[in-house]
Design a binder for these strands. Structure first.
Length: 288
DNA sequence: AAGCCGATCAACCGCAATGTT
DNA sequence: CAACATTGCGGTTGATCGGCT
């Protein structure tokens, strides 16, 4: 079955509606009521396709539309409904009298989503975001393993190899390891369990927290991490795939609406911006 | 004053679901 | 029941505007 065109393209006007067109549409619908959108434009004397008329009516001209800024309560309602329904804008709009799905969708994408991101909440899962900062924590643990190669091989089988590879490059070079931190040496598997869902989150399920256990003796510097990298993560980790770049890592998951560079920066700068000065301690790092 | 750039939002597009013949 | 028409929905685009340099 072929798809029928939404309207005859010939002689059909597109683009912004003029006040005259609006008035024609309003007058016609006042008299005949909405519906029968295919024949409506012809009968109303409009050079528009029915689809365009329907959209103009439902999203803009309908008398029951509430225009103007969204109230705080409305925003909170949208957030709550979105956490349950996802991008079911029409369903959300049905619970917000006077608001259209298009309006809610736009408001979500331009305001609410950004606000959530800034608050550290993933707008898709409505859970706290696990940014690459957590990957760095994982790697810190990983690279402090005495038996690094074996562990890295283990980790690379569990984690997204592209992420590991990129993170290792970012954490790279320098000083030889003097005192591996025993904190990270003890229970690496414990760290590896949780982050798997987060780092390799191709899905949009809520992400688990990944934390470095607290300990009063957290005096290790990133020297140790750097040193471990000299052991040769490149030997263990596969090369970056062509599909992975910084942008893709810094964006929200594929299921998320697009994230612009500014947002990505805001979220991920804590990871990508820092270097690893030799006198930079773990405690300082965790306070960032 | 002019140009650039990011934010906003109306409008469009394509697909899916539903209704009708 | 198949073919086609209509409607609804979500994602994306692009015109416009305001702030900044």
């Amino acid at each position: 079955m072929g798809r029928s065109p939404c309207c005859d393209k010939n002689g059909v006007k597109k683009g912004p509606w003029t006040p005259e067109e609006d008035q024609k549409l309003i007058d016609y619908i006042r008299f005949h009521g909405p519906g029968n959108w295919r024949i409506l434009p012809k009968n109303a004397g409009l050079q528009r396709c029915g689809k365009s008329c329907r959209l103009r009516w439902t999203n803009y001209l309908r008398p029951d539309i509430k225009r103007g800024r969204f109230s705080f309560e409305e925003e909170e309602t949208i957030i709550q409904l979105h956490s349950v329904m996802g991008n079911k804008w029409s369903a959300i709009a049905a619970r917000l009298p006077g608001r259209t799905d298009n309006e809610i969708k736009n408001h979500w994408n331009t305001h609410i989503r950004k606000r959530l991101i800034k608050s550290g909440i993933d707008p898709v899962t409505h859970s706290p975001r696990l940014d690459l900062l957590d990957v760095s924590s994982l790697l810190a643990a990983l690279f402090n393993q005495p038996n690094f190669s074996a562990v890295a091989a283990h980790a690379s089988s569990l984690l997204n190899p592209d992420v590991l590879r990129l993170a290792s490059l970012l954490l790279a070079p320098q000083q030889p390891l003097q005192n591996p931190n025993p904190i990270y040496s003890s229970n690496l598997d414990q760290y590896l369990q949780t982050p798997v869902t987060s780092v390799s989150s191709q899905d949009s399920q809520p992400q688990a927290e990944c934390t470095i256990p607290t300990n009063n003796d957290q005096t290790s510097s990133f020297e140790s991490i750097n040193a471990k990298l000299n052991v040769g993560p490149a030997d263990v980790l596969p090369p970056l795939s062509e599909s992975l770049d910084l942008d893709s890592l810094m964006s929200t998951p594929k299921s998320s609406p697009q994230q612009n560079s500014t947002e990505a920066e805001a979220n991920s700068s804590s990871f990508f911006d820092f270097g690893f000065p030799d006198n930079f301690t773990f405690d300082e790092f965790m306070l960032i």
